[in-house]
Design a protein around this nucleic acid. Sequence first.
DNA 1: CTGAAAGCGCTTACAG
DNA 2: CTGAAAGCGCTTACAG
Lengths: 337, 337
Amino acid sequence: MTTIRDIARESGFSVSTVSRVLAGHRDVSESTAVAIQAVVDRYHFTVNRAARNLKQAETMTILVLVKGRHNLLFASMLEHVQAAVTATGYSVAAQYIDEDDNEVAEAERLIAETKPAGVVFLGADADHLVTDADRLGEGCPAVVLTNSVGTGRAAVSSVTTDDFGAARAAAAYLLDRGHRMLGVIGGNPAVSTISRLRAAGVQAAVAARGLTFDPATQYAQTRYSLGEGYDAAGWLLDAGPGVTAVYAMSDIMALGALRALADRGLGVPADVSLIGHDGIDLASYVVPKLVTLRQPQETLARRGVEILMTHIGGDPTPVEEIVGVDIVEGESVRTLP
Amino acid sequence: MTTIRDIARESGFSVSTVSRVLAGHRDVSESTAVAIQAVVDRYHFTVNRAARNLKQAETMTILVLVKGRHNLLFASMLEHVQAAVTATGYSVAAQYIDEDDNEVAEAERLIAETKPAGVVFLGADADHLVTDADRLGEGCPAVVLTNSVGTGRAAVSSVTTDDFGAARAAAAYLLDRGHRMLGVIGGNPAVSTISRLRAAGVQAAVAARGLTFDPATQYAQTRYSLGEGYDAAGWLLDAGPGVTAVYAMSDIMALGALRALADRGLGVPADVSLIGHDGIDLASYVVPKLVTLRQPQETLARRGVEILMTHIGGDPTPVEEIVGVDIVEGESVRTLP
DNA sequence: CTGAAAGCGCTTACAG
DNA sequence: CTGAAAGCGCTTACAG
């Protein structure tokens, strides 16, 4: 393996000078830089970043921690974050965290190893954040996207969508179209803040119309996946008192529900109406096109990076920002006569 | 930041002994190990892997390089690879490579930085492999999954599906059901070996029946994405001489095509039949359920890891293995009268 | 069983 | 503008 010492030997300059050229420092004579670069190219040499990071106090990198490999929303948001970060002159290093891992512990380790200037969490457990956020690197500012934090810790900010309002809008959308008996597919409100807020939003919309919503028969509690969405929809039809419309807290669960309904011979929206959440690309490609609550990906990414940059710039005041959600029209909801 | 020196100081033992405990070596007295572990726990200390890798000659890690963040097939295959690797006692480190990046150059850098025992490529450009494979770490065996290699380089093996046979089967499936005018949505045969093989497979099936297939009007060349699949299907309907069935070289393109057909008022399979490729979960959840050629994910992963282990075990003979593809029945193909 | 020392591949004051 | 030296956080012979 070629190292910086090999390049130094081959070029006739010292390791220090080679290092400077590799780092793009200007305090090297033109001719020296050219000569060294030639050797670097000849050997296809690239610096060992692990070794570099070990020595460097701080890098020009933003660490992006993506919670869950299968989350199409996050996959798509990562690109927006990448674009926003790149525009600031920093580069991004993305890492995926398993659904069940502690992202804060992981962040702590990665911060120590890669010395990023800041970190962006794409989704995160409120639990981990609250209990472990203090262990994040002192000087390393962080911003959480799509999840609220509420740690009060300096320089851990968040940009969230209005989950309560979005779910209330989803339910209202269905109620406005004559539906009276709603079914909801969502996560465990006891552990997921997002699910709790959204469930409350549904309750609020229903209550505002003097109707009732009984979680025991109308709320299918499950995980955010295709297969679980499928099962949840089935449960809702069996347990539910004749739901005419279903709100799924993610598009991917809604797609699972779509198939479950078809398998029971029910048409969407002819027999049951369906509304999703997230606004992933796929939602507008399926037949029928899904009505869904679109998370404003660019806004979340842009504001998140802007806030992170103010922290990096020296302002430690944490901010918790909430952005609105758009409803995307589709073909999956029917107006009852 | 706490380092191994802090733990040494706090526990009263030397850095060497702490290092041994952290590495799980047995040559440390029970009482010492317990005492050190207590301090480690108290500080939530985790070793800096970057520093560890810098010193270690080789780690018990298999590096998995995933080409493309949006590839649902690879996302799913990664889990199978992870399972297969874990069963051998090694752990996996996954890294995503952008579609357009040179995965071999990236592998070279990561091998130097993390010293894996072996690397698994989930998808890879034949071009990069052929021109740059020699630059992979000398002693670092590699296996490429889903793409054939043909570098002849020692210890770069591959496990591929029979792309020619699979595409021929797809076309035959449609021809057997009375379709005479096929449309194909695929990649650029000039740069993608996979696309070239599959296109040839279609040609073979058509020719075997004494029919013809004109790429100029029946082959929509595009990228492997939802939106491009949508556009390609539209082009096929405009340019094509009345195709009655479409074979898309990936399920995700097929899903795009599904929507394109719906937007033109064409039913699947009533008006046009559709067959995909890959067998991703989503394919069996959409309505109509997609007929598709399923890549045998577990087999690819299992054999890939088995072969990698023989290389790690010392046998450098490269093997190129080809596995068959199953057809998954669905609701998207109609038999013509 | 334990510790002192060398060194992995880099960067960065410091001196010239 | 350039180089010698110290050190980032670890591991690993080597010696005891």
